[in-house]
Design a protein around this nucleic acid. Sequence first.
DNA 1: TTTAATGCAAACATTTTGCACCCTG
DNA 2: CAGGGTGCAAAATGTTTGCATTAAA
Lengths: 144, 144
Amino acid sequence: MKRGFDKFRAFLRGHGLILTKTRELVFREIFSFASPHPNAYEIRDRLLKKGHRVSLATIYRTLNLLVRSGLVSSIDLGENHSHFEPERTRTAHGHLICLSCGRVREFSHADIREAIVKIGRAKGYRLDKFSIQVFGFCERCGKA
Amino acid sequence: MKRGFDKFRAFLRGHGLILTKTRELVFREIFSFASPHPNAYEIRDRLLKKGHRVSLATIYRTLNLLVRSGLVSSIDLGENHSHFEPERTRTAHGHLICLSCGRVREFSHADIREAIVKIGRAKGYRLDKFSIQVFGFCERCGKA
DNA sequence: TTTAATGCAAACATTTTGCACCCTG
DNA sequence: CAGGGTGCAAAATGTTTGCATTAAA
């Protein structure tokens, strides 16, 4: 996503930070959607497989920058660590997590989004973002 | 909630476990709603103030039992640890979290609940539970 | 050349676990 | 008395940070 990358560069510049090779690698890995909701370790491993050795410390630091810039959001999939995904305001979506096999599917919810915006407005909040996690058993696992 | 307590006792019995004084204390603390979404440390401190010294290990062990029994749900409020609250299927609600002051308010969403159930059904999932977190700035903090 | 970025290891925070001892049925 | 429960301390995660070194403008 060229647009996103430019935004990242602008964010860095605006904060007196530099666009480095490493930051670009992390950015591109997330925005490649190679795995839809990677965690920090997955990002590290994927980069390593491509021959890029980036430390977890740097990955976390870059992830924090991306989250602060609004380009990436950190999501909770019911595990004990964070997952990350490109922020896509246009295509509002939630996550459907199978409690048995762990599979994560997305679902869109433009209608739900509207309902939430309305709720926020009614309570006087300036909304930033929201997330929805739905837990259950997928078709395959549900047979049990 | 008498009903809930009976359910806890039944769950324990059904798993060859015992209802002890300590487990009852943790259960009652959560269901007292003294603080609406306590984390493990808050539960420990509240019990301590009432003169009950319970170790964090036991609190976590009991919380896990309560979550497994379906009586309590673990929620993510955007901090780095879990919060817990009594499960209330009837009064479906989400959490509205202020990014500035951290205040957490609840909102009900019977309509959203229906939309989600419909989505789950369409995808062949047997739903267990879902959670919605909305982040923004509350009226007071939004002025800035 | 100057300032920030990186890797490493140590520090942190949260949660889990092993083990000796305690309680409960 | 037997089996699970508890506290303590140690281990296991996931994430952040201090510091010496490296790289970018």
